[in-house]
Design a protein around this nucleic acid. Structure first.
Lengths: 126, 126, 126, 126
DNA sequence: GTGGTCTAGACCACC
DNA sequence: GTGGTCTAGACCACA
């Protein structure tokens, strides 16, 4: 896994789970990798993975069975979706509109770029 | 001035200058507040303001006349615009599209929200 | 059986036996379930049940007849009662008083709640 | 500071803050010790203190000013009180009543012990 | 000076 | 095997 340098690794790991939950790749009650395994896979210190899992558990996105492992919670999708939507509406979107307006970018341009984005996404998943 | 806690204060101060430059509120060769004054106004450590000014100066957005003060450079608009546009295309936009897709938000919804945003902006500046 | 996640399962299983012994539901020389049966019943790893039984045996609350099973010891009630009373006096009670005091809860409120508790208990056992 | 061995140090540190907030020893917007200072005082690793502070911040009991330190939040008392009261009602109290009933302890005995406890507390604070 | 993150390595209880 | 906590020490950005 490649990590960017402008965001904490443990949060980038969390993002990975968010995305998989939002795309239904991780389903309720599905077990996620053990702390150690994910640490090895991602070449990251187990403490860092632990931090991600603790973060997700605090948000009720995963839960723990003692001595067995971590599992996706029933409300994982709902919680994640709400959280990300709120972030989007309150933070990302205003910033986005502000930028559009400051840079004098027409909305139609964005629409065009979005069509291209969707096409490229489609091809990637083929 | 209210600062968010998830971004360096000196960068939030820089954003303030970027916005004013992009909206032509700060014009070339116009003097900007002294470090001390801005520090008092914004209730921020002078070192932090200094850092903002150094940052802007490094990017040739302001220049310094020794013993007199800081001034908006001739190319301030051009440089700021290019910088922000690049940021928008390479960082903000991909992130934005990704979010749209993950959250299953239709583009038409965004368009509607943008119309509302423009209207509210208009009324604010009356 | 539902287990809480903040206490070792093997100790929660032990609590189950303590309660039954204190209420005389388990009598001296009565056979308790086999490790395997209890493991199936409670959906717990047999090792965990084994640990509970070992724990109880170490405290002379149950004893083992090789090849036959585990049985409640003669002193089970006495031992359990002493142990729990000591725990109550030295740990639970001081903690309880501390909380009362920090939360500004009047003792009379507790008394009232206790009356209600006793009533609900009574109805449950009808 | 002396730590017990049956509870995580970072949570015992948190308890210390809870108690001081509940007794109004820590007031809103009061600065609490820096991570390093508290680590030295308590002879604990800075990471452990950091963990306590993060825990408290997640619960909105303290907040952070970038580069300056941590401060008691306005709602610290309210949040702490609610949290502890809920814990008391849902966990400590039922357990307490259960024990009383199993051990055949009369409520009047407890009342007497509580009077003694209050007296000893009083003398300690003289 | 402040907090924040990360690594490396250890030890423990529990299943 | 699982997670959870802790230490020691390092490095960084920020005020």
């Amino acid at each position: 896994m490649n990590f960017r340098n402008d965001k904490a690794i443990y949060l980038q790991l969390a993002d990975y789970f968010y995305e998989n939950i939002l795309t239904h790749s991780f389903k309720p009650d599905e077990r996620i990798p053990s702390v150690r395994d994910l640490a090895i896979d991602t070449e990251v210190n187990p403490n860092t993975v632990m931090r991600t899992y603790k973060h997700l558990q605090d948000n009720n996105i995963i839960y723990n069975k003692r001595g067995i492992g971590y599992f996706v919670s029933d409300d994982a999708y709902k919680i994640t979706h709400e959280m990300k939507k709120e972030e989007f509406i309150n933070e990302q979107l205003p910033e986005f509109f502000k930028t559009l307006s400051y840079l004098n970018i027409k909305f139609s341009e964005i629409e065009q770029l979005y069509q291209n984005y969707l096409k490229s996404e489609k091809n990637e998943n083929k």
